[in-house]
């Protein structure tokens, strides 16, 4: 059984639907990457899963139940986490407080998870008392990921985690995502660095105008001449 499965999801922000039947299936062992042109509905797909906009058709199955239109405070305890593209840290709060907020829904002792996050991002441990707003773009992205991991998710969703980062940080973030996946967390992410991300994706989805255009393994999409020409810049 898939960890998460979107079947013909339709939804939008109140006006005409933005998503016109999106199909996605991810296993726990998968790194799924969504690519596509600007305005295709990639971010909207992640928001729809996370209950941030109205799903008017189709189903989203997670952990054996339809979670369409559930709100985050119910989804996070079920094992779903989301790193938005922008404004994804609490700038006035310390790094450690940001991580604590990621564990808000937990009632058990989360110090082990925090140690795990610090082990993955040693620089965050060094800066744990600093306000997150004072960190560099790459370090902020680590705080954002760390915050999302604090709830011990089974599926981590990331919206363009490499946006605006220097090449060095892009590699570091991608490596961390693969490591998190190896430790048993399913990944579903949107990426503009499409070629680079598809190279390590076990599943790739090309979205255009709110619909799947191509679906396959990452390598299949890279090798497909039409995908390469229309969506990966040749």
């Amino acid at each position: 059984m898939a960890l998460i499965e979107l079947k013909h999801v339709v939804g939008g922000y109140g006006g005409a639907p933005i998503l016109n039947g999106v199909n996605i299936a991810i296993e726990k062992s998968d790194i799924g990457v969504i690519v596509g042109p600007n305005g295709a509905g990639k971010s909207t797909t992640l928001k729809a899963i996370f209950g941030l906009l109205k799903v008017t058709g189709g189903t989203i199955e997670f952990g054996g139940e339809n979670i369409a239109n559930s709100l985050p405070d119910r989804l996070v305890p079920k094992g779903l986490s989301f790193v938005p593209q922008e404004k994804n840290v609490f700038t006035s709060m310390s790094v450690e407080e940001n991580l604590e907020m990621g564990a808000f829904t937990r009632t058990d002792d989360f110090s082990g998870t925090m140690a795990w996050v610090y082990e993955m991002f040693p620089v965050l441990k060094e800066k744990r008392r600093q306000p997150a707003g004072e960190l560099s773009g790459g370090q902020r992205q680590m705080v954002a990921m760390g915050r999302a991991l604090m709830s011990k998710p089974s599926l981590l969703m990331l919206d363009e985690p490499s946006a605006g980062l220097s090449p060095r940080y892009v590699i570091e973030i991608f490596e961390t995502i693969q490591r998190v996946n190896q430790e048993g967390v399913g990944i579903l992410m949107v990426e503009q660095n499409a070629r680079q991300a598809l190279a390590f994706a076990s599943k790739g989805f090309v979205l255009a105008q709110g619909q799947n255009r191509f679906t396959g393994t990452g390598q299949e999409l890279i090798d497909d001449p039409e995908v390469a020409k229309s969506f990966l810049g040749g």
């Binding site: 941030l52 405070d73 989804l75 996070v76 938005p84 609490f90 006035s92 407080e97 907020m101 808000f104």
Partner: peptide
């Protein structure tokens, strides 16, 4: 109290973190 500061800082992210707003 920290959740309150978080929501004042960034309400959308507080919601995404699962904070009971």
């Amino acid at each position: 109290g920290k959740a309150m500061r978080a929501m004042a800082d960034n309400a959308a992210l507080a919601q995404v973190s699962g904070i009971n707003t």
